[in-house]
Design a protein around this nucleic acid. Structure first.
Lengths: 150, 150
DNA sequence: TTATATCCTACTAAACCAATCGGAATTTGT
DNA sequence: ACAAATTCCGATTGGTTTAGTAGGATATAA
């Protein structure tokens, strides 16, 4: 049960843009260096974010990418669904309200996957880019934000 | 972002056992027929559930599998984690409290994945086999249980 | 002793993942 | 006009994972 690198890198790129593109476009080269990712691979992912209206691109020298909206208006769920496809822990939860497999009897287990799907969507749709970079502004302290862990 | 068939089939098998093993062991052959799954493939999965203490096996003719505990005491999360491994939407959330990548700066995005992980675990650890088969006892009505959907 | 089961280890075909490669098109600065 | 920087685009690739299949060995009831 893993997200692929697509969603993970995508979120990293968006956060990086939010942190760095305050004045002018940011090249993928610099994002790749800061985030320690393959520039070529990002070239494959980021155009999808552009087509989805999450970033804007400026071509040519000194070009690069910019967020298309304010960090407060971009939710992690949007980024993930663009790069990973709809969140559907099993196939039959892909479309809402559809009935799934051709099982003759009522499919009992679907309830589980629907609840998982909805709960993931709730989480990722409740966190904006602004929420994430707010944390990073406390840079240097390195506090543990995850006090819910063991 | 999918669970593999392992987790899905595993839950199906456990539900099938809960529904059918009230008196005596159930063969994988019959489970496979009812659930329309490959018997041989189940032979690969179900022993893992046995080693994890979720089912008991009885070998030989008229043998088969039984739940090792009451349906009220078996949670979907247990089944899934046995067959899919720990729920960790990205690698660095695999162990609790561990810090992840060797990023020099604090990893902002990890917060997202930790919250997703915890929310999935909360859901699957709140649904027991008993909860699922309770629904199926209303068989025949075929009501839509998912009124939270569009 | 036969049929029915679980148990166990390999093997495999297909799909998917995470890139890499090689260039075309666009824009800025000199 | 030209070079450098950059996005854009399609093809290819090596490795891993998935979802099984194959072929038996072992155990037990009838």
């Amino acid at each position: 049960m893993r997200f692929s690198t697509r969603g993970r890198y995508g979120v990293q790129v968006m956060v990086d843009l939010a942190q760095n593109s305050t004045e002018g476009p940011i090249s993928l080269k610099s994002v790749a260096e800061r985030q320690k990712l393959s520039e070529h691979y990002l070239e494959q992912l980021v155009p999808e974010l552009r087509k989805a209206g999450l970033v804007k691109s400026i071509r040519g020298a000194q070009g690069g990418y910019l967020l298309a909206k304010k960090p407060e208006e971009i939710y992690i769920g949007d980024v993930i669904r663009v790069l990973e496809g709809p969140i559907a822990p099993v196939e039959c939860t892909d479309q809402y309200g559809d009935d799934c497999c051709e099982k003759t009897e009522f499919c009992v287990t679907r309830e589980v996957w629907v609840k998982v799907r909805d709960s993931i969507n709730d989480v990722v749709d409740s966190i904006s880019l602004a929420d994430l970079i707010k944390d990073s502004e406390k840079e240097g302290e390195k506090v543990n934000l995850f006090d819910d862990e063991v």
